[in-house]
């Protein structure tokens, strides 16, 4: 599956905003810490990663990814794409 990275970035930012039902006051960009800023909880992380897998067609390997407060759209996407 070919991934248009720029379009995907915009889509993922929108996904996070949508997950928060546009209620969060935190700015969302590619490098916003998603957990530390409360933009994703544990369920949100599972849902976001599932969406990443669906959009990229690649499995997200949790065994080699150490999630933490600084996890961002960029770090999660890069890991999913094997970068």
């Amino acid at each position: 599956m070919t991934v248009d990275t720029e379009a995907l970035h915009a889509e993922l930012i929108e996904w996070v905003r949508s997950w928060n039902e546009d209620e969060s006051t935190a700015e969302v960009d590619l490098d916003t810490p998603l957990l530390a800023n409360g933009l994703l909880d544990s369920m949100g992380m599972v849902a976001f990663v599932s969406h990443l897998e669906e959009r990229t067609g690649k499995p997200f390997d949790f065994s080699t990814y150490m999630p933490g407060p600084t996890a961002s759209i960029r770090t999660l996407l890069d890991h999913c794409l094997g970068r």
Partner: peptide
């Protein structure tokens, strides 16, 4: 049990 959303270093922080 929590490893799909966070990690040991993250919670200890």
């Amino acid at each position: 049990s929590f490893r799909m959303s966070t990690s040991l270093p993250a919670v200890l922080s």
